[in-house]
Amino acid sequence: MSGFRYSYALNQWRQSPTSFVRLEDHERAFKTLSVSGFRAVELWAGTGRWSNLGRPEHLRLNYGSSAGFVGRLAECGIDAVSSLTWDPSAPAAEEGFDLRSTSRPADHARILAAVDPYLDLLTELGCDRIVVRATEPAGRIGADLDVGAVASVLERIGSAAKDRGVRLAADIDCLSPLRDAAGIASLLDSTDPDLVDLSLSTADLVVAGEDPVAIARRHVDRIGHVHLKDSHFVDSENAYLLPGAEVDMLQGNAGRRIERWFFEFGSEAGLVDAAAVLGVLGESDYSGWVVLESDQSPEPATSAMLNAWYLTHIAAAGFRAAARTEEPAR
């Protein structure tokens, strides 16, 4: 029987470039999550002084140190940073807007250099999980993906992470050329289980036309991280292959004009069976994090509260019991 823990992703609080910058706004999100029963948060990598939880140097500057940040979380009733998500192909000012691809071996050394400050940060935060986007969108890579190259750099990051006590989980999102069952299997088959885990993203699997329960069962021994979120839609027209799929597909610029794909749990149109996914994890030895998200929600606080309600009353009777009940430090 597993003993996984719940966490909540902070990404959606930063909806526009100037939102979620002031520390009092961070504090309100932490308190909202804490009182909703989530005792851990997931960070996401970003760039610029306004993405001030997304860069190690800004986080330290804002909170004095990593320990200062952990202390502030504790005061708000958050016990841990569960994880950090990082996209090696996302350009960052602090890295000279370097354009890198996990599929290009020539970029791998720079990818390893870029992840290093994050691994340092995670060590300081007492966080043992980095979730790495396996590839950039299919429409950007083109037809010839070198899975071996992707596997190779993930293993190298995984190895560097392991040296710091951090494990890597590969995030295969709904725009990835590896998004279907065969793609996922090919990447897992090409990587060392000692270095690379799978991040199971339920909504992305549904969008990709896959059954997250089946994928969870098939790869249960490789799951090292879970993003539990819902979607109302399947990309049945392969819009993910569009060159600008991040806007064309995920923001409704083209095709079916769907402007929001991801939702909190509990709506009638939801396609993810959260209870079944949690059931698979519960029957396994999985002891990592299950991270819920407000991804794409116009109301991140509302979505967090509704997700908490859904876990408590529908999907996971143990959710509230799993939440720490003693008082947080003040």
């Binding site: 409704g252 402007e259 116009p298």
Partner: peptide, 15 residues
């Protein structure tokens, strides 16, 4: 501007 994903820049999409 307001979008189904919350407040975003108009470049959210062409519409």
């Amino acid at each position: 501007t307001g979008t189904p994903q919350g407040p975003r820049q108009p470049t959210f999409n062409r519409n």
